[in-house]
Structure formats: C-alpha cells, structure tokens
Amino acid sequence: MWQFFHKLGSPKWFYGIAARLMPWLLVLGLLCLGAGLVWGLAFAPKDYLQGNSYRIIFIHVPSAFLAQSVYIMMASAAVVTLVWRMKLADVFVKAAAPVGLVLTFISLFTGAVWGKPTWGTWWIWDARLTSMLILLFLYGGVIALDRAINDEKSAARAVAILVLVGVVNIPIIKYSVDWWNTLHQPATFKLTEKPSMPAEMWVPLLLSVIGLYLLFGWLACLRMQTEILIREQRTRWVQDLFHVNGGAR
C-alpha cells in the first residue's frame, strides 16, 4: 500500500495516468451533465409551488455540492503536503483552488437569482449564505497566498495550513440549515433518507452532479499537468516526452 502511495507521489507517473484518463472524464462528464441539464430544463415537471424557477436547482445544487467537495479534497491534500511533503498534493491544491472559486461563485450567483422570485430577496445574511460567502473568500485567500509567496516550498506549506484552517467552515455550511433558523431550506438529498422529490426530478439532478464531478476530474488533471510541466520542464522525463513524440513522427 505504501508503495502505491509513493508511486502516487511521482509526477511522471501521474502525468501518464492523467493523459489516459482525461478523454474519458471529458466525454462522460459532458454526456452526464448535458443529459441532466436538458432533462431538467425541458422534460422534468415543474414544481407545484415555485413553478419553473426551481429549474435553477439543476445547476445550483451541483455547483454548491462540488464547491464543498473540492474544498474537502484540497484539505485532504493539505494534510498530505504537511505530513508527507508530497509535491503532487501541493500541485493538486494549486490546480483545484481556482476551479473551486468559480464553482462557489456560480452557486452563490444562481442562488441569488433563484432567491429573488422565490424568497423575495437576492441576498440575506443567514447562516447558509454567509458561510458559503466565507468559502468564496477562502478560495480567494488560498489563490492569493500562493501567488504572494515566491518560494515554492514555503508557499506549499503556508497554503496547506490556510486550507486546513478553513476546513472547519465545511461542516458549518452543511449543518447551518439544521443548527440555526435560516431562510435557506434544508437539504433535499440526504444520505440516509430517500430524496424529498420524485424520481423525474432527482434523477436529472443526480446526473448533473455526477457530470460536474467528472468535469472537475478532467479540469483537475489538466491543470495538474500544466503545473507539473512548469515545475519539471527541465527534468529528463519531460524532455523524453517530446523526443519520443518527435521520433515517432
């Protein structure tokens, strides 16, 4: 098991695996997301109370869900950075943070647009919305801190600590709707109960969540490849990559 773990730390090994995985992630992700969104937009029945405005759920929930998952993944990678000093974990944090930032922004924006017709307001400082805004700032802080420190090793360590400190926000986001009075409704999907919506609504929702997950996988691989190339461009294996390619041509 440890051997596998160390292999995982090899940028060269990861670069190859990512190259093989990426087409699958992209195609499957686009298919799932496309199917989920078309189904949700045009074929799912409207809601008895909110009418058609609830169709925003098919992008709001996947992006909010991903925004939190990505942060949890980054926090796990931060532990690996701090304890094992594994380069690849740091590469992941740097590659994923901008994606998380965009996803958090999308969930806040779509939430505001959805809130206007249903609640009657774009924004309210309730616990769920505020903790989600803090997540946006955390992503921004991670990116800014990484840019601010020039030395690669210090940047990796500082960023990892910031990511770890911020992880306490995740349970607050998740449970804010249960712990406090909020305008935001509780979760529709729960792990232990069946979803409080019929199948013709939750199946497309689940499809778009899976699709967005796969697309995140593709984005993460792509961005990690970029970061690895920048860091390792003078190493032997990166040069070999092109010479082999060039020879085949």
Partner: peptide
C-alpha cells in the same frame, strides 16, 4: 416592513400536489 417567503426542501409536480 419586509416579508420573505421560506420554502421547504420538498419538490413535486403540480399533479402530485393536487
């Protein structure tokens, strides 16, 4: 001076609600 609607986590088609 302001009234906001709070909705719950339940979604269903109008026919089912009826």
């Amino acid at each position: 001076d302001q009234v906001l609607a709070k909705h719950d986590e339940n979604y269903m088609p109008p026919e089912v609600a009826d």
